[in-house]
């Protein structure tokens, strides 16, 4: 890989990072929203480095062609340097190893595939979530249920709903009307369908599935977005032993502008 190729590869890589952040919001399919500025900075630096390398190489190249002096001694030295490849593999700084071509794979991924956010495929494959080890770190739920007036419909993230359903031993959720938004995942093994969202710590590679089994209402197509209003089906027995939480749908409507599929 010569230096022009290295420089151009970096320009393309940086352009991919910038394309997915500045003119589009593609990066939200892969990483957290707060990561955007870092990606932009990395993209700018990468493009600048690539441009600097290509520019220096072109300037150097034109000088080389202007320079007609005889440097045969040096040419011999350079040839010997080339023959000495075995002993100093990895030291030839002007050329990059072949593995560096792989930097074009993320470029291909962005510009050709434009990977979408994870969806029902990931939810179907993932193992059913189990009860969280512990409650919210602060000891208080962040879902707004405690603050809401009795009888008021509480809008929650599915993450918050599942956390509350599994952890709150006082079962404050029972009998409350709740509104959840997520994408549909068919349930192949029985009645109802899943309303799911993904939760990520850093990027899509560590996405965790949160889902509720919706009963009542239609059985929508996979990956369509729905806002469902309904109530938690209070389980019998210990909360920890529940394998998945059920949600009794009262009203439902499709979502026109699906949000970021990942919940914070």
């Amino acid at each position: 890989m010569n230096r022009i190729a290295q420089g151009l590869t970096l320009v393309l890589l940086g352009a991919a990072a910038l394309t997915s952040t500045v003119p589009t919001n593609m990066y939200l399919n892969w990483v957290k929203p707060g990561f955007g500025p870092f990606l932009i900075a990395a993209g700018v630096v990468t493009v600048a480095l690539g441009v600097a390398v290509v520019a220096a190489e072109i300037r150097g190249g034109s000088r080389a062609e202007d320079d007609g002096a005889d440097h045969s001694a040096c040419a011999v030295a350079a040839a010997e340097g080339g023959a000495d490849g075995g002993g100093r593999a990895g030291h030839d700084h002007a050329r990059a190893p072949r593995v560096a071509w792989l930097l074009l794979v993320p470029v291909l991924a962005v510009f050709v595939v434009a990977p979408p956010a994870l969806g029902s495929y990931t939810v179907e494959r993932s193992e059913p979530a189990s009860a969280p080890q512990e409650g919210p770190p602060s000891g208080r739920f962040d879902d707004g249920l405690d603050e809401a007036a009795p009888g008021e419909v509480v809008r929650m993230d599915i993450r918050q709903f599942v956390m509350r359903a599994w952890v709150d031993e006082e079962r404050a959720l029972a009998g409350r009307e709740v509104e959840l938004t997520g994408f549909a995942v068919p349930n192949d093994e029985g009645e109802g369908w899943y309303l799911a969202r993904l939760q990520m710590a850093c990027c899509a590679a560590d996405a965790i599935v949160n889902r509720v089994l919706v009963t009542g209402g239609p059985e929508p197509e996979a990956d369509t977005w729905w806002t469902v209003r309904g109530t938690w089906v209070e389980p019998e027995g210990e909360l920890v032993d529940v394998s998945e939480h059920r949600f009794d749908a009262l009203e439902w409507e499709t979502v026109d502008n699906p949000p970021d599929p990942y919940e914070a």
Binding site: A17, N29, W30, V31, L39, V105, P106, A109, P115
Partner: peptide, 16 residues
């Protein structure tokens, strides 16, 4: 597509 998403996610998370 899921593979591509996870690959891109890891690459771009690491890039900065």
């Amino acid at each position: 597509l899921a593979w591509a998403t996870v690959f891109t996610a890891i690459s771009f998370q690491a890039l900065p």
